[in-house]
Structures are given as C-alpha cells and as structure tokens.
C-alpha cells in the first residue's frame, strides 16, 4: 500500500480521530500514515452490529410475548451471553438461564436484581424496563 492510497473512509471511528496504517512512500520507504478508516472494515464492523441489533430486537420480541425477562434485553444490549453474565454476576450459568425466564425473574429478590443492575451500571427500575425499540434494519441479514 502506498501512502497516497491509504484510505480515508469515515465510518466506525467516527469523530474519534484517526488510526495508524503502515504504507510506503514514493521511494519505497515505510512510513506511518493516519487513516480515517476503510470501507471494507466499516462494512465488516456494521455487519457485527447488525447482528447484535437483531439479537436485541429478538430479545425484546421475546419479552413482549412474556417468555423472556427484561434481563435478556440488558444482557444482549451489553453484548453478553449467559456464560459471560454468569462470570460477572457470580451466579451459576444455569441460574442466569433461569433468570432469563419472565416468571422466575418477576420473583427475584431485590438483592439479586441489584447485582444485575450494578453490572450494567443502571438502577433496578431501569433493569425492569425495556424500551420500545423499533426493529431496525433488514431482519434477514
């Protein structure tokens, strides 16, 4: 890659500055060049977030039908799965799994709710609410 070909496609970095690329100058010497981003990277990153957003939408759907608890939403929104949430909360995985059920979650002690709320850095009230998210994007990605 030549310095003059270093892509400047704004995207995932947004307004957070630039990143470093290695590229050669006209004399073939390697230089450090800054880049605002590169379209293929932006696309791959978007793809990852599309999946996450779809999972969040699925979780909300599950909560609306009364099957899943709000914990499912917060877990997904924080990019966690049952295993990781078990690591953070100190609960066994099977217990986290149970807490994802609406009927079990509704009977949880405040102390348990607090434990989850603290992980997500929110209040217990916030833990119990799920926003009305519009389902964004193509559901068949």
């Amino acid at each position: 890659m030549k310095v003059k070909d270093v892509p400047q496609d704004k995207g995932m970095i947004g307004d957070h500055g630039t990143e470093v690329c290695y590229a050669v100058d006209d004399d073939g010497r390697y230089k450090i060049a800054s880049s605002l981003g590169w379209e293929p990277k932006n696309i791959a990153n978007e793809q990852a977030w599309d999946i996450i957003n779809r999972d969040i939408a699925d979780a909300i759907q599950g909560i609306r039908t009364g099957k899943l608890s709000p914990l499912a939403y917060h877990m997904t929104k924080n990019l966690m799965d049952e295993g990781l949430l078990a690591n953070y909360s100190g609960f066994y995985r099977w217990r986290v799994k149970r807490h994802l059920r609406a009927d079990v979650f509704n009977k949880l002690k405040p102390a348990f709710l607090k434990r989850y709320a603290d992980i997500f850095e929110i209040s217990i009230e916030e833990l119990e609410t799920v926003p009305d998210l519009e389902i964004k994007g193509d559901k068949n990605i």
Partner: peptide, 20 residues
Amino acid sequence: GQVVRMQEEIGTGGGGFRFM
C-alpha cells in the same frame, strides 16, 4: 465478516500485520 474483521479491524496496521 469475522475473518475480515480480524485481518483489518483489530489494530493491524493493514493487511493482517503484513505491512507492519
């Protein structure tokens, strides 16, 4: 997509560290 991300996104300096 994940291969592309590992190659380019995770601070590689481009081309899966080949340029560096």
